[in-house]
């Protein structure tokens, strides 16, 4: 087979998979957002932008957008800060470092549902270790999923717990690429460890950090499983964000058109955010 034919065959296979698994469902979902239908079997009725008008006029939508932004920003910020901190610690030479490095990625390796169950047991009213700890400190019991603030904190905590290892691992790997002589030159130049972090590590790893933050942002904005499993969006919609709202609208209230409209808006917001992000943090800087 000629190299061109090989090239084309790979290209065609890739394109077919992309079309089948991504382009077609996305197109279908966007199409649905212009129709009114209460099940997938009935006849859809064309309503144009009607679903969008209805969604944008509802307070649930704005509440979900606000919750989503709080959740996304809080989790990204904590993941990046904690992740870098852990990477700096794990980059030091100490006894048992490789074991600790291995253990540090464990939360990321476990299925989300397992981690959520573990957390639920930890805060369980009668057997939870965190409950016992709170009691031991003499504090009043915390109702993790009953108050809006505690519920939001729960989903943020579990998400940070789950995905900080990703940031740690990526950052740790990137740190290995910084030549040691740069740190030595900086030591001779009179820097302390904090100055070396801000003058060498951070600028050298800016491209990696840009990608890490972007990936985390996209994932956190669309994150569904943790919230769904922990709180289901409750109590009273306090942890409900756009992905949960789209799901409940489409599959609990069977307003499939409105659900599709919410998903489409979410998609547009994210695309715009990524576009702006790349404008401010271009990957090919310098």
């Amino acid at each position: 087979m000629s190299s061109k034919a090989t090239f084309m065959s790979f290209l065609v296979i890739g394109l077919l998979i992309t079309l089948t698994l991504i382009a077609a469902p996305v197109t279908y979902a966007i199409t649905l957002s212009f129709y009114s239908l209460d099940s997938f079997v009935g006849d859809p009725e064309w309503v144009g932008l009607g679903n969008y008008a209805k969604v944008l006029a509802s307070s649930e939508f704005w509440n979900a957008l606000k919750n989503g932004l709080i959740y996304a920003f809080a989790t990204i910020f904590l993941q990046v800060v904690l992740g870098i901190g852990m990477a700096l610690v794990l980059n030091q030479v100490f006894f048992g470092r490789n074991v600790v490095r291995g253990l540090s990625i464990l939360p990321y390796l476990l299925p989300t549902v397992v981690m959520v169950l573990v957390f639920k047991w930890m805060v369980d009213g009668s057997i939870g270790v965190i409950t016992a700890g709170v009691e031991w400190l003499g504090l009043p019991p915390i109702y993790w999923f009953e108050s809006p603030l505690a519920a939001m904190l729960s989903v943020i905590m579990v998400s940070v717990w789950l995905w900080t290892p990703f940031v740690t691992t990526a950052f740790l790997a990137a740190m290995q690429t910084v030549p040691g002589s740069l740190y030595e030159a900086a030591k001779v130049d009179g820097t302390n460890a904090v100055q070396r972090f801000f003058h060498i590590t951070l600028p050298m790893l800016k491209p990696v950090l840009t990608v890490i933050i972007l990936l985390r942002a996209v994932w956190m904005f669309n994150k569904f499983d943790v919230i769904w499993l922990l709180t289901g969006g409750g109590p009273v919609g306090s942890t409900e964000h756009l992905a949960i709202l789209a799901y409940t609208t489409a599959f609990s209230q069977f307003d499939i058109g409105a659900g599709a409209a919410i998903a489409t808006i979410s998609f547009l917001i994210l695309s715009l955010a990524v576009f702006i992000y790349f404008f401010f943090f271009p990957l090919d800087a310098e």
């Binding site: 002589s181 740069l182 030159a185 900086a186 030591k187 001779v188 130049d189 820097t191 003058h199």
Partner: peptide
Amino acid sequence: EPKDRNIAMVFQNYALYPHKTIRENLAFG
């Protein structure tokens, strides 16, 4: 510490700070 010894060093691979301009490289210490 190296910074308290009042020495200056030139490294084999130069170890210039790639994200800083030449002026900033010279001025950093």
